[in-house]
């Protein structure tokens, strides 16, 4: 970018979108290979990614440019890509290859980095974690693969010329983090309120271009992705134990204090 004052040129913004099993349904792992059983529940956009899409659309509205959705996932991820397009994104890249099945967070970051090399971008926006794996490391690993600055856990993003500045959410407030574009930004849910798709955009979404990309097209080394080459291994899994009975506090004058202590222990206050 690198502009001297005035309105910055149009920005290319890429949003990473992951399709995850609906958190409202019972989610399962497939006992055959301990990976996610995608057939057992409906796929939806990872909730935090909706905030990333919203932030990208707000940046576009402010600075002009284009919003591209990048999603790695099987065929049914198309539904989530369409939803992202119906929120107002301009186009999408769908990285889809059986070789990617079972990739862990690092491998996914590598694959996404390779896919990003097929397009121009000034900023990559993603949710700070996904509701299924919840590792929260893809953004950081991606920035490393790309050799770009990472700005994580943003609850506010400002871009001025070639500089990006975020408020990084912390336990007791926020840090201000600044970097030069291009950069990778992960967002938290406090950042905005994702919009609902309008009827017009829903109707337009089908006509928006979706580029299909396979591993070869993204020059992904097959030896670096997939379940067999994963750097982590799911050895076993078990259903979560049923929720234990709650604590019943009988108020004998100290009920308020006990509630406050409880909330403090859970970091609510």
């Amino acid at each position: 970018m690198g502009v001297q004052g005035g309105r910055p040129p149009a920005m290319n913004i890429v949003v990473l979108v992951k399709q995850v099993p609906d958190t409202a349904t019972e989610r399962k792992l497939n006992p055959a290979d301990n990976t996610l059983d995608r057939a057992s529940s409906d796929g939806v956009i990872n909730e935090l990614d909706e905030y990333a899409i919203e932030e990208a659309l707000l940046l576009k509205e402010k600075h002009g440019g284009e919003v591209t959705i990048l999603s790695a996932g099987p065929d049914q991820a198309t539904d989530s890509i369409r939803k992202a397009l119906s929120m107002g994104a301009d186009k999408a890249i769908h990285l889809n290859d059986e070789a990617l099945h079972g990739s862990d967070s690092l491998q996914t970051a590598y694959a996404l980095a390779q896919a990003l090399r097929t397009t121009e971008f000034d900023v990559v926006v993603l949710g700070s974690e996904s509701t299924d794996a919840r590792t929260g490391v893809v953004g950081a690993a991606l920035a490393e693969y790309l050799g770009l600055p990472q700005l994580t856990l943003a609850n506010k993003v400002d871009i001025d010329g070639g500089t990006i500045r975020i408020q990084r959410q912390t336990d007791d407030g926020y840090d201000v983090v600044e970097a030069q574009l291009p950069a990778v930004v992960s967002v938290v849910e406090k950042i905005n309120e994702p919009r609902y798709p309008s009827f017009k955009l829903i109707m337009a979404a089908k006509k928006k271009p979706v580029t299909k990309l396979d591993a070869a097209g993204a020059e992904i080394d097959p030896a670096k992705v997939g379940l067999a080459n994963a750097t982590t291994e799911t050895v076993d899994f078990a259903a979560a134990p049923p929720r234990a009975a709650g604590t019943v506090v009988k108020d004998e004058g100290t009920g308020g204090v006990q509630i406050a202590d409880f909330l403090a222990s859970k970091k609510f206050v």
């Binding site: 369409r82 939803k83 119906s86 609902y196 798709p197 009827f199 829903i202 109707m203 979404a205 089908k206």
Partner: peptide
């Protein structure tokens, strides 16, 4: 249609 279902979900 896909669009009708997307409208419902929105």
């Amino acid at each position: 249609s896909e669009e009708r279902l997307a409208l419902r979900s929105a």
